[in-house]
């Protein structure tokens, strides 16, 4: 049996990093993924359970010099209630609005959603489209160090990331998108809420008239990790979203995804959804 031998509750990032360095730590934040996963036996508790909820450095949403820093402990509800997120990172805000239920949103943290690294993770797809990066903290040689990894390099497989066991995700940094940047998040589930995405799409672009610039497209649940779709972006860049362009973008996207069949959808249906819904979402964005 994997029993928890010690429960720790660090009061600072330094302290948390110190505990991580010693090893055999399970990190607990909101617990909305960890608890069901350990209950189902998919994740085993390490001997130390570290509750990071009292670490003040992991909180807050702030903008400095064109970068929005979102602390790893910020809950989905806090994101949803943030004017900054709603106004400047609207595509992320939309994903938070579609995220699970009120109870889950109140507990679930952005950092937890990122570290859980689900291919279907709702916030990951808009964060990819917003070109976010992770801020990882560790204390390898007695002093606190941080490194940054762009989100599109961060995920290495379903449930896997480049974060080392000795590192703690401290924050997500999102460069402010250019003025006039608009976006849309689409999540396909079988019901309006409380559902895991069969596919999800985030599209962002800067509109000049009807011409799309700075096009960014990301998908969830169609590959082992959430992904960007650079070839589909390239098709759209500098163009209007007319029918031929939409079709070409959709075809490009189909070459970039690798969906599987599971209890929620077949690979065939996921591809159909990507084609149909990417066109629908882009045409919405093109008219914003």
């Amino acid at each position: 049996m994997h029993a928890i031998e010690r429960y720790v509750r660090p009061g600072s990032l330094e302290e948390a990093a110190e505990i991580l360095r010693a090893g055999n730590v399970t990190v607990l934040a909101g617990g909305t993924d960890l608890m069901p996963q350990t209950h189902a036996g998919r994740v085993k508790f390490q001997s130390v359970l570290m509750n990071v909820r009292r670490v003040p450095e992991l909180r807050g949403i702030e903008e400095h010099g064109g970068v929005v820093r979102i602390g790893a402990l910020v809950t989905i509800t806090e994101l949803r209630e943030s004017a900054l997120v709603r106004e400047r990172l609207n595509v992320l805000w939309q994903a938070c609005d579609h995220f699970a239920s009120d109870q889950i949103r109140n507990a679930a943290t952005l950092g937890g959603n990122v570290c859980n690294a689900s291919p279907a993770g709702d916030t990951l797809v808009p964060l990819l489209a917003l070109e976010a990066r992770t801020v990882l903290a560790s204390k390898p040689n007695g002093s606190l160090e941080t490194r940054r990894i762009p989100l599109d390099k961060f995920f290495s497989g379903p449930g896997r990331t480049l974060k080392k066991p000795s590192e703690l995700l401290a924050a997500i940094e999102v460069p402010l998108p250019p003025q006039g940047f608009v976006g849309e998040f689409y999540k396909h589930g079988t019901r309006p809420g409380l559902d895991i995405s069969a596919i999800s799409i985030a599209v962002g672009a800067q509109l000049k008239g009807k011409v799309l610039n700075e096009v960014r497209i990301a998908f969830g649940a169609v590959a082992p990790t959430p992904i960007r779709a650079p070839r589909a972006e390239a098709v759209l860049e500098g163009r209007e979203a007319d029918a031929a362009t939409l079709e070409a973008a959709a075809q490009a996207a189909l070459g970039e995804i690798h969906p599987i069949s599971d209890v929620r959808a077949s690979d065939w249906y996921r591809r159909e959804l990507v084609r149909n819904m990417l066109k629908r979402v882009i045409s919405h964005v093109g008219q914003l």
């Binding site: 079988t190 019901r191 309006p192 809420g193 409380l194 209890v263 929620r264």
Partner: peptide, 23 residues
Amino acid sequence: LVVENCTVKNPNFRDYKLVTAPE
């Protein structure tokens, strides 16, 4: 209730979808 090869594939309310209030 998804039964494949005599096995129930969705024995939980996440994957067995009851109608919810917004519907």
